[in-house]
């Protein structure tokens, strides 16, 4: 990019995203409680968190896939446009076009009664208005792009005729059909064998570099995060408790939860190393979140001040920690990263 060009808006900007589930007769669930991030084209942000921390709900909110009783608030910008302000028809065009999503279970994205080729071509026709044969030719290129062998023949396959790894590739091809600038990936490798998982991770890495997409990748697996991310956000009880570059977060975790999660993850070479380190207790109920720091009840470093809202500390540009202890080291607090 020439130096004098106008600065490009980030591929995706999310500000203070909140999701509450309100259903009559049931306790209100605060699943996402103020998530903010921005991501440039060609970068991968991984959201790392344990079960129920709000990872999938966050992505579904961005894609507009939540049920009607979900209360979504905040700001979502794609390439500088506030998409929640768009009329419904335009919004549908953005979702599935500029921003698309892949899932853990490919069958939830693929339709069992149409061939892979028909599904990809249909998406292209719908979003770009091309004719059927052009769309089918593009579909074949896409299958080749995701390294499906004998792509021409595979176009005619139904999803159930493919192996798990192959279906995952087909779903990625479908998600790439309209050249999205933002790809949301919800644990796309969790159900796969390690040998196939690494293939898919390397494929996504390559595609993201070649096509310059921004990828928001959700996982509970620290190793997967280390393989794929440029930036990481650690999520706990609906909030980012720490963000930073993958190296910052993996090598110099600042939040006690991040540190606990990393040290309780069983990694190679631990044999005969004695007891594993653990985080005591379990995550809080989202229907009754403790006031202040949500991690306080399990935190070994908790102090009385943790009972009030934790400060948002910015140790360096682009990084963020929500913890009183980080404040001591980096007194100049600031806005969330």
């Amino acid at each position: 990019m020439p130096l004098d060009a106008a600065p490009q808006p980030p591929a995706i900007l999310v500000e203070n995203l909140c999701v509450r589930f309100e259903r009559r007769g049931q306790p209100e669930i605060s699943a996402v409680n103020g998530v903010s991030f921005s991501l440039d084209r060609g970068k991968v942000l991984t959201i790392l968190g344990e079960s129920g921390s709000g990872k999938s709900v966050s992505l579904k909110a961005l894609m507009g896939l939540l049920p009607p009783f979900a209360r979504v608030s905040g700001r979502i910008e794609i390439a500088g446009r506030d998409i929640l302000k768009l009329p419904a028809s335009k919004l549908a065009q953005v979702r599935g076009g500029e921003i698309s999503m892949i899932f853990q279970e490919p069958m939830s994205a693929l339709d069992p009664v149409y061939t892979i080729g028909q599904q990809i071509a249909e998406t292209i026709v719908q979003h770009e208005g091309t004719d059927q044969s052009t769309a089918m030719a593009r579909a074949r290129q896409l299958l080749e792009r995701v390294a499906i062998p004998s792509a021409a023949r595979r176009l005619k396959n139904y999803p159930h005729e493919m192996s798990g790894g192959m279906r995952q590739r087909a779903m990625i091809a479908l998600a790439l059909a309209c050249n999205p600038s933002v790809l949301l990936a919800d644990e796309p490798t969790t159900a796969l064998d390690v040998t196939v998982q690494i293939q898919i991770l390397m494929l996504l890495r390559e595609l993201q570099q070649d096509l310059g997409m921004a990828i928001v990748f959700v996982t509970h697996d620290v190793g997967v995060a280390a393989e794929i991310s440029d930036r990481m956000a650690v999520m706990y009880a609906g909030r980012f408790v720490e963000t930073g570059t993958v190296r910052e977060v993996m090598h110099e975790a600042r939040h006690p939860y991040t540190a606990g999660l990393l040290s309780s993850t069983v990694h190679g070479g631990l044999r005969n190393q004695g007891e594993l380190r653990t985080i005591p207790g379990s995550p809080p109920s989202l229907a009754a979140l403790p006031p202040g720091c949500h991690f306080m009840p399990r935190c070994r470093e908790a102090v009385s001040r943790c009972a009030s809202e934790p400060p948002v500390v910015v140790p360096n540009p682009g990084a963020m920690v929500r913890c009183v202890h980080a404040e001591a080291q980096h007194p100049a607090g600031g806005a969330p990263a």
Partner: peptide
């Protein structure tokens, strides 16, 4: 060997660069 090499690394500076095994079982 291929199985063990497929384990994701925990070190972002030592990512997997050679595909350990192609195809599905």
């Amino acid at each position: 060997r291929a199985l063990l090499a497929s384990k994701p690394t925990l070190d972002p500076d030592r990512r997997t660069t050679v595909l350990p095994l192609t195809g599905d079982p």
